[in-house]
Write a protein that binds this DNA or RNA. Structure first.
Lengths: 334, 334
DNA sequence: ACTTGGCACTCTGCTTCCACGAGTGCCAGG
DNA sequence: CCTGGCACTCGTGGAAGCAGAGTGCCAAGT
């Protein structure tokens, strides 16, 4: 059904349309891509591709543009990832290494990705649940108020306030600090419920009430529904090609403002090591049906870009993969 | 030069234009605002207002629209702040009180502001320099690597990694922790240089090298150039009135992505208790010359909104002020 | 069976033209 | 100083016409 030349035509259409943002006609295509056949032949192939739903045309006398399905085929079978140039790689590395802390790493990654791809970039903080506890500090803020500070191996620092029913002494706080510290040091957060379950019984009766308050906060806010954080940047790129989002910029921006939505995007990454591409209507999120999303896991989290379906997929995939790799290494080694 | 009626006409023009987004003509204005005079009279007044530079018209046969100068006069002399309704106040309060930590307070404030005003909201984290140290924790990450965690009275938690030249023992770390803790507890960050200057001499010689490394990081990253953070939200509102930013949406989005720019906006607040309004060309930031910015300090930081010059100033000022008040109270009491 | 040139057809986009209407500026009279 | 009247300007919107791009299909060539 689809011989090699037809696929070649499809590739040419995608590439042309991506770079010019204009429907591409048979004539221009035939001569510009050295296919060695006449426009008429190309037209026949185009008709076939259109029958199969890979391309369409906005109106009768316009050129063709790829459909979501066409992009899908292009991504799956016709394109190959565009690797970054060595200078680019060096630039990424040195830019990321300049970061002073985790926040900085994430911010820099976002900026990097959006500049490399000219799209909107999304970077998730390393997930808490998979993280390992490096330190748990308890600060005695007020007689009946504690602040828990959790530091993970990925550099994340989480804080939670614990309101107690009654006042507690500094000494008791020290005891609890030591107890918890021993149990949790080096544990991953998913393991903590098991590690902590017998703690109240094992502890001196005097501190049990306080201990349970602390434990409930730890379990509730760090383990059961650990806060996932996502940072976004480069939204100005959405206006780059005003033509891409005729009247749909609004919903896109709205969707991108929702943490939940972003998490869902990044969370759909099953296999964390391969790059995932969601094209147009494939997106579960309503407001992003006119966009494509390229994501990949970097270890403890995920990152990606969001842009028009008319996107430079090979470039985006290459950039996303490269940045994920560097970020992953950086955080693993930190 | 400008009698009361002319001012009244200006007010009417601003209000009409803000609500309809269409140039307003003499006829509609005369009848809709019950000025008690004929359109012809209004026209004369308009001509005067135009001579003074308060209004202009896009083309000969169109109605008038306010200039930046006109808005300025309106804001300064013709409008009065629209106070929020009691239900609105209650909603704000209960929404903010649901926050679990500082990050949450800031995020909620941004959302609140953008929803109240239908503009882009900007909220600065409580500034570090004015903050008081509530706790300084030193975590021994690796033999030659420490993590400083600083907790302020406003709830901010800052972390910095200190790389040491050589390994250090847990005991030495404890000593330093105690030393620093004593000196810094309750101090504001601006005071710290004074409080710490004699510390190296006062400390046991053995730990001096480590101590100076730690001190230099504290001073450099927390005091000399303390990291200011800003959160932004509601950018989708920029697309609400597509007509407001014909081809200028791009630079606005770009400007808003720059932390520096946002800080500059909020930093221009001299008198922290009054609301500041920057209209159009008054803005120092290039990309925001087509917008207006309404800001106010809330105590340890500032917040505000960014929108088209054609903005509901009384409403925006009221909302900004109200939110700032609640946020200020919340953080002061926390 | 596939390719190719030719040709008629169908659109869109652009211009021109024109009439309409909103809105103004000005003037003379109350 | 206000008001009604009136001529003038100018953008808007619709109709009409035209050029260009691109298609679909057919018949002939390889």
């Amino acid at each position: 059904m689809l011989d090699d030349r037809k696929l070649e035509v499809l590739r040419a259409i995608v590439e042309d349309f991506v770079s010019t943002n204009e429907p591409v006609g048979s004539k221009a295509l035939a001569e510009r891509h050295g296919l060695g056949v006449s426009p008429a032949t190309v037209r026949n192939d185009m008709a076939a591709l259109e029958d199969e739903g890979y391309i369409t045309h906005p109106h009768t006398s316009a050129g063709r543009i790829p459909t979501d399905r066409g992009y899908r085929l292009f991504v799956d079978r016709l394109s190959q990832v565009k690797p970054l140039s060595p200078p680019e790689r060096r630039a990424i590395q040195s830019f990321l290494e300049g970061a002073v802390d985790l926040d900085d790493v994430v911010r820099r990654s976002v900026r990097l990705l959006s500049q490399l791809t000219h799209q909107v970039a999304v970077v998730q903080y390393p997930s808490l649940s998979r993280a390992e506890v490096r330190h748990l500090e308890i600060v005695h803020l007020a007689p009946n108020r504690l602040l828990l500070v959790l530091i993970t191996d990925s550099g994340r620092v989480e804080q939670r306030v614990v309101e107690l029913h009654g006042p507690v002494s500094d000494d008791d706080v020290s005891v609890i600090r030591t107890l918890l510290g021993e149990r949790l040091h080096g544990a991953t957060l998913v393991d903590t419920p098991a590690k902590l379950s017998d703690l109240p019984e094992a502890a001196p009766p005097a501190i049990r009430p306080v201990l349970t308050s602390v434990l409930s906060v730890v379990l509730a806010s760090l383990v059961e529904k650990p806060e996932e954080r996502v940072v976004i940047g480069g939204t100005a790129n959405l206006t780059r090609n005003a033509l891409d989002f005729p009247r749909t910029l609004r919903p896109v921006l709205e969707a991108l403002e929702e943490q939940v939505v972003l998490l869902r995007l990044l969370g759909e990454v099953n296999d964390p090591t391969t790059v995932h591409v969601k094209i147009g209507e494939e997106n579960a999120v309503e407001g992003l049906r006119s966009t494509s999303v390229v994501t990949v896991g970097y270890g403890a989290g995920a990152l990606g870009v969001v842009g028009p379906t008319r996107m430079d997929y090979p470039g985006a995939i290459g950039s996303v993969r490269a940045v994920a790799r560097y970020v992953g290494d950086l955080l693993a080694g930190a």
